[in-house]
Write a protein that binds this DNA or RNA. Structure first.
Lengths: 229, 229
DNA sequence: AGAACCAAAGTTGTATACATTCGAGGTCGT
DNA sequence: ACGACCTCGAATGTATACAACTTTGGTTCT
């Protein structure tokens, strides 16, 4: 594995897991020393993270972890809804739905899996596999690319939302509806069910965000470290 | 201006203007010598072009200019339609439509401008200003980013389509409808008019492509230089 | 003759020294 | 005291030498 890949993965994880919150400033030499590599692979990693929008260049002072405000989250979901409803439409219209047969069964059992509660990670993993199946079936490289562009930002949002069991159980039911629509080749239902799911997800996330902001005990959305811009 | 910016702009232009057709292989040292800079800024330029999808890495052999097949063009427009109809919807729903008042008048006179025919470039420039106004008014950074991601590919497609005056005159009328809908704050009309415009554009482009392919006298869509992958 | 292996050439990947640019803080002038 | 300017420092930008890897073509063994 290339040093630039490791540097990229490491920095990306730090950002996605909120170890380096918005406003944190990175400089090349500093990170090169921390990760024990030269500046070259660090530059490579920085440029990838900047292209994804996780880092924003600060003229003459390094790169700063991009902010993630309430407004940003809303904009993120606005685009996500447009893209993923379209993806669901396309996937449902596809010939081959075999990939989703197995997933349907799993989502049917997901409710109890969540109620047992001992293994929420396996539910997240199931959702990840649904995403992968959608990716594989969507067909359009450009649509897929646009969706992938949003993923890191969504991962960062996830670190903000609190997981209440009720919401997860609802989400499981929503996912099941989507998968069933795809298997039935019902494009419009697949699209609408996706829209429903994402809008409910967004509402839940915004509630978490507002609660955090109100309490001010949680993690800040807007950091004060940020020098300017 | 940085050397990497110049290298990027130069290579990008070469690709967009079909000086280096799909299948052309680039290597760092080769381009470094040609553009009289070291490998470092070339690497930077390559990585940007690869992120945009104009170049595709070829393990051990350089980077190849990505293909642009009929199917790719269709996928490109499928996403473009989704994104730009949404953009039109958002812009029309906005408070401030001042930006578009002037554009409306210009599009009203565009027909004769095209018929005069002596200055088609100024019509393209007008369309570019409409795009810029949309960009400025769309509000969502993510939607804007997704649209921008498509632009270089669309520019490349443009080099394939032949400009017949009839199509341009129709396009001017379609643009006018879009602008009027925005000024009237009619979101759904703006969205639908955008959809109409883009679908007609796509049809015109595909006709050009098919004509080129049939005649085989024009520029090839799929190059044979490409080693593998 | 065919396939596996090996060697050589060319490629990208990395480290590092040097150049350049930008910002912050101090100083000088008003 | 306030503002403009200047200097210094730290950051990125660039060039280049060297390392590691991949492909390709030849060679050798079966």
């Amino acid at each position: 594995m290339r040093a630039s890949d490791r540097a990229y993965a490491r920095l990306r994880d730090d950002i996605l897991h909120w170890h380096t919150p918005p406003g944190t400033v990175f400089a090349e030499v500093e990170q090169a020393e921390r990760l024990k590599v030269s500046r070259t692979p660090i530059r490579e990693a920085f440029s990838r993270l900047a292209a994804e929008g996780l880092l924003v260049p600060l003229a003459g002072r390094g790169l700063v972890v991009s902010e993630l405000s309430r407004e940003t989250i809303i904009e993120l979901f606005e685009l996500r809804i447009v893209l993923e409803t379209e993806a669901a439409r396309l996937v449902a219209a596809r010939r081959n739905v075999d990939l989703f047969i197995g997933l349907k069964e799993e989502f049917e059992h997901a409710a109890e899996l969540i109620d047992r509660g001992d293994d929420l990670a396996s539910y997240y993993e199931l959702v990840a596999r649904l995403d992968a199946a959608m990716d594989e079936s969507v067909g359009s490289r450009f649509l897929l690319g646009a969706i992938r562009q949003l993923r890191p930002h969504l991962a960062r949002v996830r670190g903000l939302a609190r997981d209440n069991r009720k919401r997860l159980s609802d989400a499981a039911a929503e996912h099941l509806t989507i998968v069933e629509a795809i298997i039935d080749r019902d494009s419009e239902l697949a699209a609408d069910a996706t829209s429903v799911h994402l809008k409910k997800s967004l509402r839940n996330i915004l509630e978490s965000v507002d609660a955090l902001e109100g309490a001010a005990g949680g993690r800040e959305l807007t950091e004060t470290k940020q020098g300017k811009q």
